[in-house]
Amino acid sequence: MDRVLWTKDQVKLAFHLYCQLQFGKLHRGNPEIIQLAKLLGRTPSSLALRLVNMSSLDPAIRASGRSGMKNASKLDHEVWEEFHEDWERLAEDCDRLRQALEQSQPLEPLVTTADELGILDDFTGETRSVITQQRMKQNFFRRAVLASYQGRCCMSGLSEPRLLIASHIVPWSKDHANRLNPSNGLCLSAIHDRAFDLGFLTLDDDYRVLLSEKLQSSSDAFVVQTFHAIAGRPIEMPYRFLPEPAFIKRHRQEVFNG
């Protein structure tokens, strides 16, 4: 069955999953890979290999010097480009495709862990279907960002998933085209996420932490310990989906209270 050519829809679903898994979890024993392989009529080994080969498309992966990931197909390239042109539409497409497959092949549900839970805004007055769509989109973005940073806050190193946020560099409401783009995200602890959103800190062009004057001048013990300690330090870079420099610059210009 694995000798049958992959369809574009199958590659979309594979890449959708690739975005949400940490690099060390791209193996045939991963329950999520096993489940999707069953839906696609593929072996877990075949799907895992496809996911690893997709890594070669990411500039961050290539820059790291990792080898053995050079077999991405023309179709992989095409799907990669489509995702980067419209992350939201592709996420919606994959959700629809996945639901159709699951309806025809009922599977045992996987256990949802704390790090996979999305964070919802206030959807008062919106329909259930809209809420469901927003949950799906936010969950995809969260998982993609946390996986890229290996589940650690890029400023503090915190690894407790219940205290981690997939923080938008350019706010969700300000750039619809990039609100699901993992390169518009940083994995931050809840306190660093809040400070970032309020403009108390940002990054320079070399991804080093910049503090606002208010934080720099504060003598509060918590501020000194939590923020002064990271001032001027570079963040821990993700292994894929590097933060887009244009988004960082926009955050400095539009959000940062220097």
Rank of each mutant, 00 (worst) to 15 (best):
P59L: 11
P59Q: 13
P59V: 07
A60I: 00
I61V: 15
I61D: 02
I61P: 00
I61R: 02
I61A: 06
R62M: 04
A63W: 00
A63H: 00
A63N: 02
A63C: 01
S64Q: 05
S64N: 10
G65N: 08
G65C: 08
R66L: 10
R66I: 12
R66E: 02
R66K: 10
S67A: 14
G68P: 09
G68L: 08
K70R: 14
N71P: 02
N71A: 15
N71Y: 15
A72F: 11
K74I: 15
K74C: 12
K74M: 14
L75M: 15
L75S: 12
D76V: 13
D76Q: 12
D76W: 10
H77Q: 13
E78M: 06
V79T: 03
V79N: 00
W80Q: 03
W80V: 04
W80C: 05
E81G: 03
E81M: 11
E81S: 13
E82T: 07
E82M: 07
F83Q: 01
E85M: 06
E85H: 10
D86G: 08
D86T: 05
W87C: 04
L90E: 11
A91N: 10
A91Y: 05
E92C: 12
E92D: 14
D93C: 09
D93K: 07
C94G: 15
C94S: 13
D95Y: 11
R96M: 05
R96P: 00
R98K: 10
R98S: 06
Q99T: 15
A100L: 04
L101Y: 02
L101E: 01
L101T: 02
E102K: 14
E102H: 09
E102Y: 05
Q105M: 13
P106I: 10
P106L: 09
L107I: 04
L107P: 00
L107R: 11
L107W: 00
L107G: 00
E108C: 02
E108M: 07
E108V: 11
E108H: 08
E108Y: 06
E108P: 01
P109C: 06
L110E: 06
T112H: 05
T113P: 00
A114M: 04
A114C: 03
D115N: 04
D115Q: 05
E116F: 02
E116N: 04
L117M: 05
L117T: 05
G118P: 13
G118S: 14
I119H: 09
I119F: 05
I119E: 11
L120H: 04
L120T: 06
D121L: 07
F123V: 03
F123S: 01
T124E: 02
G125L: 03
E126T: 14
E126Y: 10
E126W: 03
R128P: 01
R128N: 09
R128D: 10
R128L: 11
S129T: 11
V130R: 13
V130Y: 13
I131V: 15
I131Q: 11
T132H: 12
T132W: 06
T132E: 13
Q133S: 13
